[in-house]
Amino acid sequence: MSEPVLIAEDLGRDYEVGGGLFGKPGLVRAVTDTSFTLSPGKTLAVVGESGCGKSTLARMVTLIEEPTRGKLSIAGIPTVPENWDRLRTEVQIVFQDPYGSLNLRQRVGAILEEPLKINRRDMSAKERQEKGREMMRLVGLRPEHYDRYPHMFSGGQRQRIAVARALMLEPRLLVLDEPVSALDLSIQSQILNLLLDLQERLGLAYLFISHDLSVVRHIADDVVVMYLGRPVETGPKDEVFERPRHPYTRALLSATPRAEPGAGRRRIELKGELPSPLNVPPGCPFAPRCWKTQDVCREVRPALEGTPHPAACHFPEDEVVEAERA
């Protein structure tokens, strides 16, 4: 097996919020105790609801934010600020909204060449253009698109441009932050196929951030389920989907509507909403909404452990769930 591209150990990021002249600022632990590894050619999906810290995680991996705790290394190099310049070419990001992430005043060609201009100073203009055109072919855009502006493209084509831009520096790791949630169903499948193709051809590693479990189920190799900034369950995709051990994962799976009328599935209904991240309960963060909560859950924070794959729960679910879905 090849070296992992991305290793995160007990990664954490805090934000100070509020606080005035005399008031003490509050501390939001956006991400805590998150560890994972990602190998070339693999996809690690991070799933969870809004506020679970998945975008903060994406920003840390893309070197937009510095972690406040823990260690992160990309391609074997620790991500300390001295190494950022070197690492920026190894990791690139594709954002959710292809309407907001492209500069409307730049032609597609200029958008694609810009990363080269900044990071490959020795490249000639001609070489840059050649590379840009080659990349457009790779993502399925036509050569005549090179001189057009983003507003002339549909959402799906813009997302192709965003992917092309991210690949210009030949990164080894691509962070995909909800890359298809803003797209229509018929376009979504085109982009997912493109991503799968590129991964096969270039051996890319994907950190795939999404809240759409049916997409994750299709594209991921491994899954991290996050809740309130902490991973509550991690494991290979099939295991997590077929045999979820954490009650939250189970609830999330059961809440996802399936395109099968009359499937007659029992839905686990969660009470209440996500607690404020300023005020995370001392024990298990999921305890206030969980149907299995006991005293120990409210007091002791469960560790992420166990077999066949780790889950942070005092009373993990260990029976097969597949039967009740049938």
Binding site: Q188, I219, A259
Partner: peptide
């Protein structure tokens, strides 16, 4: 085109 109806790795488009 629904990912959950996909039978293979490539989706219908």
């Amino acid at each position: 085109a629904l990912p959950e109806r996909a039978t293979e790795r490539r989706l219908a488009t």
